[in-house]
Write a protein that binds this DNA or RNA. Structure first.
Lengths: 235, 235
DNA sequence: TTTCAAATAATAGTATTACTATCTTAAATA
DNA sequence: TATTTAAGATAGTAATACTATTATTTGAAA
């Protein structure tokens, strides 16, 4: 991942560009207008109707191109989903390093992590064609479908889940900074990530599975997770 | 849910029969040989190839009936998935009340819950056409697909997730017995349920997301969850 | 300036999926 | 015996998930 001037006509703007695993695409969607439109409209459509109802035909219609045009960029809709989800984890990783930069106290860093993962972000204007708000919603409802497949092993061998794993490692290291003797830093990291999303989904769709149904407030999820995490690592 | 003599020719046997939400099916699969075969072979096929690869045509071929025959029992494959998942949660609820019967100490009850959810059960012979071992594997890999849809609200209105919610409430009550002042009993219950499955999936398929990759032993997951749970409720 | 390669657009076609409909036969029940 | 009911057999449709072909446009190297 790197930050660069993306060749925008407004010379002083900085554009955040994320380098993705090339096995995920046939043609790099960042390198053309059609490609960027594929990403933009995919996010819109998956957000609006869910991944099951999402087809390349509808996507093509929404962009104003043909099905074959989309297939030149992505082999199938699963790889496209993994692409945008990976993109999101890279973006979160960048946000995390940005937001925890210069913070010494690992407990404060860990709180930042929990807040970052639980908060419905606002759209980041430095990434023109990606709506991070919608992307966060997609992660909540569709994130686990990236790996809950019978080809998870193959996908994993092709490093499709590297950004997720990297993030999990980063969080695991912060946990170990808090308590170097804690025995389950990776499992706790993946628990934080998944529960930040799942408790949000439950809060909004199956409220009796949570204790936040009255307020429907993300801040409650943050409090729950903070208690869970800091009590188990004993701070 | 009730236990009854299922009309077996071996008169002294007890058969566990679980009453399911009738909105899930068109014809009750428990009431015919074909119906029982649909359940049995669905579990086998979804276990072997995953839910995405599962079709009513393949199911019909595997049973030796026709596609139309299956459609007489279930409207679509999603409802069939929700059916077998609901069945599993009812069965777990029964196991839970059976195993915690006569136990006074709520902390021991809660440990039983964690172990029950994390352990790969053996096939229960009192449920002839259901293989609980395979069903547990299905829950791990496909369980969240029951509710991660864009029609979760409608499904919820039809009470499709009642057995899951009931289990969550039961576990929440045990948590409150341990600590009546704990503020998040339902969220902690759903966290235990989901993480018992997800950490198992990660352990076997994306091991760097956990700390159990060396042993690949369920007992490690149980230890992790026990620490997480009992530290957060402060026992 | 030409040329050549790459991207795109337009169109067509296939196998599979997710159903619906109908008609006949077999078995259970009244 | 008559009648409902389930099951079996067969057919058909719309949508999905692709693949293939050809023609057109564009942009960079020779």
């Amino acid at each position: 991942m790197f930050v660069e001037n993306g060749g925008s006509p407004n010379y002083m703007e900085i554009e955040l560009q994320i380098k993705m695993n090339p096995s995920l695409y046939l043609r790099d969607p960042e390198q053309s207008e059609l490609g960027k439109n594929i990403i933009k409209h995919s996010i819109q459509l998956i957000h609006d109707n869910g991944f099951e109802a999402f087809t390349f035909k509808k996507l093509a219609e929404s962009i104003g191109t043909t099905e074959a045009g989309v297939y030149r960029y992505f082999e199938n809709k699963h790889k496209l989903l993994v692409y945008i989800i990976s993109w999101y984890w890279c973006w979160i990783q960048f946000q995390l390093s940005y937001q925890t930069n210069n913070i010494e106290d690992p407990a404060i860093k860990l709180k930042k992590v929990i807040t970052l993962l639980s908060t419905n972000v606002e759209d980041d204007i430095t990434t023109g064609h990606v709506d991070e708000f919608q992307l966060h919603q997609i992660l909540i409802a569709e994130g686990s479908k990236a790996y809950l497949t019978n080809h998870v092993g193959k996908d994993n061998n092709q490093q499709f889940f590297q950004p997720y794993k990297d993030l999990c490692n980063t969080i695991g290291e912060i946990i170990l900074e808090c308590n170097p003797k804690y025995k389950y830093p990776h499992s706790l990291a993946s628990t934080i990530i998944e529960m930040a999303h799942l408790q949000n989904f439950f809060m909004n769709h199956l409220p009796t599975l949570t204790d936040f149904s009255k307020s429907k407030d993300e801040k409650e999820i943050i409090k729950y997770l903070e208690e869970l995490v800091f009590n188990t690592i004993r701070i």
